[in-house]
């Protein structure tokens, strides 16, 4: 579904990605692990088009999307859920979700997608008329994921969904991602610091270090200690 080959990217003079390749299959959950500041988020941003990939290729269903602007990539069915969430703070939960369905295709399936999103996150239905500014951290995270789903995405790029959340909430968020994947068959590329959670959810994992992929394994062949070792 998503095929990344030799992607490079930099911030100013600092090269962050030095040729990264990975694959995300249809309906798959893949974890992208690795120490902080080694390029995991940059890779998601490069795929989403919000930070330019300077070289390599990014293919979606066989079509090159590396140089497409972000809104075209959303139209093609890729939703990026940034770690920073970037909600519209002075709008209600519902208004945020409505903007999530901004593309023409998404607007046509608005009711359907909204029902699905409320099924995954029942709490958002209760909060629908509340301004996002006043939401708790966990609720904002849910809105961010839900807003991404409203675009009718087939691929979800999720950046650190559990960061800063209490353990119980972390479990909720992970449960939601699992449901999204199982019920709608949406592929998920997951960047995560908490290796335990990530490995419970994903089928395969990549380890990204110093801007390159160190290794790629099925989760069944990995254990937490092994991965942690590779961090240093």
């Amino acid at each position: 579904m998503l095929r990344v080959r030799d992607v490079t990217s930099s911030y100013g003079d600092i090269q962050v990605l030095r040729g990264v390749s990975l694959d995300l299959g249809d309906g798959e959950i893949v974890a992208l692990l690795g120490p902080n500041g080694h390029g995991k988020s940059t890779l998601l941003k490069a795929v989403a088009g919000v930070h330019p990939a300077t070289g390599g290729s990014i293919e979606l269903n066989g079509e090159e999307i590396r140089t497409e602007p972000p809104h075209r990539i959303v139209e093609r069915g890729v939703a990026y859920i940034p770690e920073e969430r970037y909600l519209f703070p002075d709008m209600t939960v519902f208004e945020n979700l409505r903007l999530g369905a901004y593309t023409r295709r998404a607007r046509e399936r608005f009711a359907e997608n909204l029902a699905f999103v409320y099924e995954i996150f029942p709490r958002l239905r209760e909060r629908r008329d509340q301004a996002c500014r006043s939401l708790s951290g966990g609720e904002s995270r849910m809105v961010a994921i839900a807003r991404g789903l409203m675009s009718g995405a087939r691929v979800l790029l999720v950046d650190e969904p559990s960061i800063g959340l209490a353990p119980a909430l972390k479990k909720d968020v992970y449960e939601a991602i699992r449901n999204i994947n199982r019920q709608a068959g949406i592929s998920v590329l997951l960047v995560e610091q908490e290796i335990e959670y990530a490995l419970r959810l994903a089928e395969r994992a990549y380890l990204l270090k110093k801007g390159t992929i160190l290794f790629e394994r099925p989760v069944s062949e990995l254990d937490v200690a092994h991965v942690k070792e590779a961090y240093f």
């Binding site: 940034p82 970037y86 903007l99 675009s151």
Partner: peptide, 10 residues
């Protein structure tokens, strides 16, 4: 309200 937010919703 959020330029990057607007970008990620397309």
């Amino acid at each position: 309200q959020s330029l990057p937010g607007a970008q990620v919703v397309g």
